[in-house]
Amino acid sequence: MKSIKAAGLIFANPFIAASGTFGYADSCLDFYHPDLLGGFVLKGISLEPRKGNSPMRIIETPSGMINAIGLENIGIERLIKDKIPFIETLHSVAIANLYAETKDDFIELAEKINEIKRIDAVEINISCPNVKSGGMQFGVSPEMTENLTKNIKKVSSKPVIVKLSPNVTDICEIAKAAEGAGADALSLINTISAMIIDTKKMLPALANVTGGLSGPAILPIAVRMVYQVYEAVSIPIIGGGGISSVNDALQFVMAGASLVSIGTYNFISPASIPVIIKQFNNEVKKTDYSYSDLIGIAHRQHFT
């Protein structure tokens, strides 16, 4: 397959490992080399280290899981000191996922990332449902999305990807606001706000009460959102939510995603992405279309 150009970057294949499911690109080393991926998104990073939420933090649900990790992370200083040296040895596209509670902190974080040569792009997480402030609070309002994206675009020397929340009435509105503010690409979807009650304990199963649903359960919602956003904007889309097979990935591409991301499935079958990539290339070859023709093709076909 030819490489894919999106957001000013070149991806060897369309597969991206999703933030929070791939550590700092070192968690897969026992299974495969990260250079086999088109790219990867690092665990969400903040200016200061974050402790995260108290346990229970995760629970299985029908065809999915809910997590409320609360963005536990090592903070930007340790990312630079402990993790970047390894990431510098890699060749696939490296994307940092940024999280902050205020606009000013987001800006400071983006400035710090400018200093890290090996980071190719930033993904701004305005869609985490598991933290009290920041996160989703930015991502549910078109005005705040626009304002924050503009400010980060102003200072960032890297392509800016805005990661959208599905926890909104109209995701297209937010997508347009991000595009209008200069976003280079969109990433969707983040997890869907959800909860489980433990009926034996008569309590919410997670200590944070609510968390974010991911896995196959959210796939049809995510495909629908990618389909709609593709019609609303013209910047590239990284599509994902529940992908665990070639057919899943193809759905996102046909809905309009230029790139696809795999998250939760990295926990289930951590050696799988390279296998899926190979099968995917074969499937694409079997169609009469080039990969770029397949992107959004479901919009151009007619029911017969």
């Binding site: 499911t21 791939f22 550590g23 968690s27 026992d30 995260g52 933090r57 995760i58 990790i69």
Partner: peptide, 22 residues
């Protein structure tokens, strides 16, 4: 024992509280 998501250290779902943090 803890409820586990991945089992190999990446999901941060299985933490317990210790004197040196989670």
């Amino acid at each position: 024992e803890a409820y586990m998501g991945c089992g190999f250290g990446v999901c941060l779902g299985c933490v317990i509280n210790t004197k040196s943090g989670y």
